[in-house]
Design a binder for these strands. Structure first.
Length: 294
DNA sequence: GGTAGACCTGGACGC
DNA sequence: GCGTCCAGGTCTACC
């Protein structure tokens, strides 16, 4: 067993990160019954399969990885967990902007701002495509099917990793459609995997891109299957909360918040949060909605 | 720039 | 068990 602590930039709240959106329900993520421990099965760059077990500790997180990690492996795990939990992210300007807004009063106290992310951006792009034009239960199922069909399994039979671009590129869109049941999304996922596997698209570089957010958004929109909603979701994951992922949930929330439950358009959602500028996505995401969605 | 219709899947419902 | 309807974003063609 290898274990170590990682410090987070303050304020930090482990619970707020892992419950920031539905990603915790998408394998290889899982949480224990108490919700206090986060598990994730990952494949390191040297091909070794490992399971991360992460809990909150004073000032950050405690990480356990069964088995002994080499120096390079440990460095990779540290880098990945830092990314996944956004340990070094700073939301000072958002908290400053949110000060005085009753609907965001809780933001700093609960350390809202970080969203749970997969270790690779490729995985998050695929998962985001799986959220489009479907119900959440189907997203969970398609993601699970994808992992069961193509993800590498640990020797002890516990846990499977998310498939690599190479693994998905080596199959066909027809198999993805039939076996994984991703429907018309199959060509989008297959084409993406092929481009990444062939080195024609470097998705991981988007994590550290210096492109202005608008240009980065345009790059994301060039990916087949990524439209305005998906691009905004991915920008949130990249720490660029300038856009709102406007889906039917967003329109329902805004409808009940300001329009008496009457149907609203995407433009009205946009207008409702316009004043939050580069923090629009965060203000929307962590807004204290009066409608509970029921 | 805006809009209509097609794209898939699985669950709910009526028969 | 079968058929129909519905929910959910993106893409393309068209105006």
């Amino acid at each position: 067993m290898t274990s170590f602590d990682l410090q987070a930039r303050q304020p930090f709240n482990f619970n707020s990160v892992i419950n920031s959106h539905g990603w915790i329900q998408l394998a290889p993520f899982r949480a224990d019954v108490s919700g206090r421990m986060l598990f994730y099965t990952d494949r390191l760059t040297n091909g070794r399969l490992v399971e991360y077990r992460v809990t909150e500790t004073r000032g950050g997180v405690h990480v356990e990885v069964p088995g002994r990690l080499g120096k390079a492996e440990k460095a990779e795990v540290i880098q990945k967990i830092t990314w996944m939990l956004g340990l070094d992210m700073d939301f000072t300007s958002f908290y400053k902007a949110a000060r005085g807004e009753p609907k965001l009063r809780h933001a700093r106290r609960l350390a809202h701002g970080r969203v749970l992310r997969s270790p690779s951006f490729f995985e998050d792009v695929v998962k985001t495509i799986l959220t489009t034009n479907t119900l959440w239960a189907s997203t969970i199922r398609m993601n699970q099917n994808l992992i069961e069909a193509f993800g590498a399994s640990a020797d002890d039979g516990k846990g499977q990793a998310f498939p690599t671009p190479e693994e998905l590129a080596s199959t066909s869109a027809a198999v993805l459609r039939k076996k994984v049941r991703v429907g018309y999304r199959a060509p989008s996922i297959h084409e993406l995997a092929r481009r990444v596997a062939k080195g024609k698209l470097d998705l991981e570089s988007y994590k550290t891109s210096t492109l202005p957010t608008l240009e980065l958004r345009n790059e994301l929109l060039k990916i087949r299957g990524i439209g305005p909603y998906a691009a905004a979701n991915l920008l949130m994951i990249l720490g660029r909360p300038d856009f709102i992922p406007i889906d039917t949930y967003a329109m329902k929330m805004v409808s009940h918040e300001w329009h008496g439950g009457r149907p609203v358009t995407a433009k009205q959602v946009e207008r409702a949060f316009r004043k939050w500028g580069e923090h629009k996505g965060l203000a929307f995401w962590f807004w204290d909605w009066k409608y509970d969605g029921g």
